[in-house]
Write a protein that binds this DNA or RNA. Structure first.
Length: 107
DNA sequence: CTGGTGACCGCTT
DNA sequence: AAAGCGGCCACCA
């Protein structure tokens, strides 16, 4: 059991729902969580990342498809590497949300 | 207890 | 059209 706040749990739930080979944005997760302004808390939620095994925070990027610098959960290159391993082309730390953006509609 | 910050985004003027 | 500002939640000092 985790006395974690309901909001955090929701965020983790959404991030866990991110399919393979796709990336979601903080705003998107925040919106799906219920409050669009939760975007900030989303970042914090991944920051604590209590379950990096279930929460692929590396699949979460900002609205510009750019990976945050503070991410560095084990190496900025590691983050980009993981995305590339998923089949996501990372250009200069940037991802094409137009191609890899989490589109629930298409899926 | 209060103030301020933070892996952000959207809206208003 | 562009620019600036606020807002929500949680944690830290």
């Amino acid at each position: 059991m985790k006395p974690t706040s309901n909001t955090f749990e929701k965020i983790y739930q959404i991030v866990k729902q991110i399919p393979y080979g796709q990336v979601a944005t903080y705003g998107q997760i925040a919106r799906l969580s219920g409050n669009k302004n939760l975007s900030r808390v989303v970042g914090y939620a991944l920051h604590v990342n209590p379950d990096p095994d279930t929460i692929p925070c590396y699949r979460v990027v900002n609205r510009f498809g750019q990976v945050s610098s503070a991410f560095a959960f084990g190496g900025e290159n590691q983050q980009v590497k993981l995305l590339e391993l998923e089949g996501i082309s990372v250009k200069n730390g940037r991802v094409d949300l137009t191609k890899f953006g989490w589109k629930k509609d298409v899926f």
